[in-house]
Amino acid sequence: MNSIFTISVDFELHWGGFEKWPLDEAKKQYFLNTRKLIPQLLDLFEQHEVHVSWATVGLLMHENKAEVEQNSPKTQPTYYQQELSAYQFIEKTGIGENEKEDPFHFAHSLIAEIVKRKGQELASHSFAHYYCNEVGQNTEQFDADSKAIQKAASKYGKQLKSLVFPRNQFNADYLKVCKQNGIEIVRSNPVDWWWDTNDGALNESKWKRLNRGLDAYFNVGGKTSYAQYAIKKQEGVYLLPASRLLRPYNPKESILNQRKINRIQKEMTIAAQNKEYYHLWWHPHNFGNYSQENLAGLKEILNHYSMLKEKFEMQSLNMGEILQKFEAGS
């Protein structure tokens, strides 16, 4: 059996944090930088034959506001903290008429490019950046969201099979709804306690965030790669654990930036030697600041994968391809 290197990226633009990120000029430039990076990322993945799951917010899949209104479900989340609702944001703050006018909330042209590239999977990050562990929402509302993103994805000729829960709010009780709506594999969280997501989107402790940050550079958490038997199936859905978040470059961290890359490379090597899985993830917008430094770090990781592929026959598969592998019994 080959070791497996997989990448999933959470493609959100402003939908990933509309409740906490005012769209000022600095933030607009941040997301414009992100958009410019997408083709560069696709070129890098193609160059290194790395297959990636693009977990995409369904609202980004539209060409214009009329399409958003047409595809938005009538049953919408009733969060106790109403500011978490993308629909409330649209109603109170508003979005533009189309991608040209509003490149922060529409990304049809980028998604059309993603689905054309070899090995790149269009996956679900829910339709409206749905929070599955927030007080007030329920499975009926999540079901409506799940149906809405499949409808949006059909524009690209796709039936989505893979899902990443927004803000990593993994909820095992919702797996049955996932299966009913065509999702057969989801990214689950690492086992370390600081990845528990029951606090909610706006209530997470600083202590958790601090430990997550420290673990990117030092041996704080547990082993990150895992054997195939560690990938469980629940309610007919495979749970593919995340291994490591690729944190963005920080000019204040100096030596730590390289330590972070070296740590990922070492973990990848352990996975390759032991014929295990290694699952790296991040958000494309994490590269919106210091873009070239972030790309340089990613190139180091992808070059390391190419070496492991040659030396240990490590294989790159996206989440959907891992699902196919399981279905084929290999």
Results as ranks from 00 to 15, higher is better:
103 P>C: 00
274 N>I: 03
256 L>R: 13
322 I>W: 02
57 V>I: 15
143 D>S: 13
181 N>Q: 04
156 Y>P: 04
90 I>W: 05
28 K>P: 01
86 A>M: 09
298 L>V: 01
310 E>D: 11
182 G>S: 08
33 N>L: 08
318 N>A: 01
38 I>R: 06
76 Q>T: 09
103 P>Y: 05
311 K>P: 02
98 N>M: 00
303 N>Y: 08
316 S>D: 04
69 E>T: 08
298 L>Y: 02
44 L>V: 04
328 A>S: 13
185 I>T: 08
188 S>T: 06
46 E>Q: 14
312 F>N: 09
67 E>C: 03
178 C>P: 01
220 V>H: 05
260 K>H: 14
102 D>C: 00
288 G>P: 03
16 G>L: 02
8 S>R: 04
61 M>W: 02
86 A>I: 03
162 S>Q: 03
243 S>C: 02
50 V>L: 12
73 P>Q: 11
55 A>G: 06
88 Q>N: 08
263 R>A: 10
295 L>V: 09
313 E>A: 09
202 L>Y: 05
69 E>A: 12
207 W>V: 13
228 Q>S: 09
160 L>A: 10
304 H>R: 07
249 Y>L: 04
299 K>Q: 15
16 G>D: 08
267 E>Q: 06
69 E>Y: 05
19 E>Y: 15
94 G>N: 02
113 E>P: 03
26 A>G: 10
151 K>L: 15
100 K>D: 01
326 F>V: 05
296 A>R: 14
266 K>N: 12
83 E>S: 15
144 A>I: 04
305 Y>C: 05
210 L>S: 07
208 K>D: 11
102 D>A: 03
98 N>P: 01
261 I>Q: 12
184 E>D: 13
130 Y>T: 00
151 K>R: 12
271 A>F: 06
315 Q>D: 10
202 L>D: 09
322 I>G: 00
91 E>R: 05
242 A>K: 01
145 D>R: 07
270 I>S: 11
52 V>G: 01
18 F>L: 07
163 L>I: 09
234 Q>H: 09
162 S>F: 06
211 N>M: 15
64 N>H: 05
9 V>Q: 04
47 Q>W: 13
325 K>G: 01
273 Q>P: 01
172 A>D: 15
303 N>P: 00
273 Q>Y: 05
3 S>T: 02
305 Y>A: 07
71 N>I: 14
202 L>K: 12
245 L>W: 11
125 H>G: 06
223 K>A: 05
10 D>K: 08
13 L>G: 04
